[in-house]
């Protein structure tokens, strides 16, 4: 319990101790929310699945075997086989890599863009704010999936273009969140103090405003990940995302569509995978919001 006492010390001796103590308190709050823990467990499981895919998969995800096509779930094929005799369980395990990659690439591109646009607009105010927010509003007023569809139609189908299309339509909410935060922070006394010390606006935004906006953006992006997964799966389902033979979950559902009445497992299994993972991100995001950003939650 020495570590615990050190973390919870009322008079921390160093900055590090104080920060770790804060993190520990948040972890304690997070841990008391069972649904959030379920979400965390699902996300960790997804990470492990993607990391260890070759070790976990029982078959080669691309190996076809027409003699074993459309077999129901069994001890040999946990989730059955698809129309080309490929093992669905192994395909889902490998598909976790694609899903995770799409989500990470989108969030990593979109987060900084939204953060930059939002903090610049919120801190500067005035004309810059009006212009940036007008542009953001225009993008917010678009139907996301339809716009992504049109983009992929123009750029051509494929996983890279799907990611670009999703990223292109996903940044505005981030900018909105960051702007709201920046507008509050801008009037804080410590910002005024920094300004009096002669810090440039750029420095203030980069060093003092942006870091404080990060927690709400983490919450926002965790909650957004489920939506990204669903949009990517939708594009895959329509044949516009990942191309065969890639084991992308949405595309797998599309191949099972023709067999839904007689070989239900082909389309059902990848769908369950999408549900579980998206639910995991939603639960985790909800839990993180309660801990990191209590004023947003109820």
């Amino acid at each position: 319990m020495a570590a615990r006492d050190w973390l919870l010390a009322p008079t921390p001796g160093s900055r590090l101790q104080s920060r770790l103590g804060q993190a520990y308190l948040r972890w304690l709050a997070f841990r008391s929310n069972p649904l959030a823990c379920v979400g965390l467990a699902i996300v960790v499981a997804l990470l492990l699945l993607a990391l260890l895919a070759p070790a976990i998969a029982t078959h080669d995800p691309l190996a076809q075997s027409l003699a074993r096509r459309l077999q129901p779930p069994s001890a040999e094929h946990y989730f059955g086989t698809d129309a080309l005799g490929r093992d669905i369980f192994s395909r889902i395990v490998h598909g976790a890599r694609i899903t995770l990659l799409v989500v990470l690439v989108v969030v990593v591109t979109v987060g900084p863009i939204g953060l930059l646009v939002g903090t610049a607009a919120g801190y500067a105010g005035g004309a810059l704010d009006t212009v940036l927010m007008r542009v953001t509003d225009i993008f917010l007023a678009f139907p996301r999936l339809i716009l992504a569809l049109a983009f992929v139609a123009a750029l051509g189908p494929g996983i890279e273009n799907a990611v670009i299309a999703i990223a292109f339509t996903a940044w505005p909410p981030y900018a909105r969140v960051a702007r709201a935060e920046a507008m509050v922070i801008r009037n804080a006394d410590f910002i005024a103090a920094t300004r009096l010390q002669g810090a440039s606006p750029l420095r203030i935004v980069l060093r003092h405003v942006m870091p404080l906006c990060v927690p709400s953006l983490i919450v926002r992006s965790t909650l957004d990940m489920a939506g990204i997964i669903l949009t990517a799966a939708g594009l895959g389902f329509l044949g516009l995302g990942a191309q065969p033979p890639m084991p992308e979950w949405g595309a797998m559902i599309a191949t099972g569509r023709d067999y839904i009445f007689d070989q239900w497992w082909v389309a059902t299994m990848p769908g369950i995978a999408i549900c579980v993972v998206a639910l995991g991100f939603n639960l985790l995001g909800d839990g993180l919001r309660d801990v990191l950003d209590p004023k947003q939650g109820q």
């Binding site: 939506g227 939708g234 389902f237 389309a267 999408i274 549900c275 998206a278």
Partner: peptide, 11 residues
């Protein structure tokens, strides 16, 4: 917020 609409339709 987690289920794909096309999958729910198929099921």
């Amino acid at each position: 917020f987690s289920v794909p609409v096309f999958w729910l339709g198929l099921v």
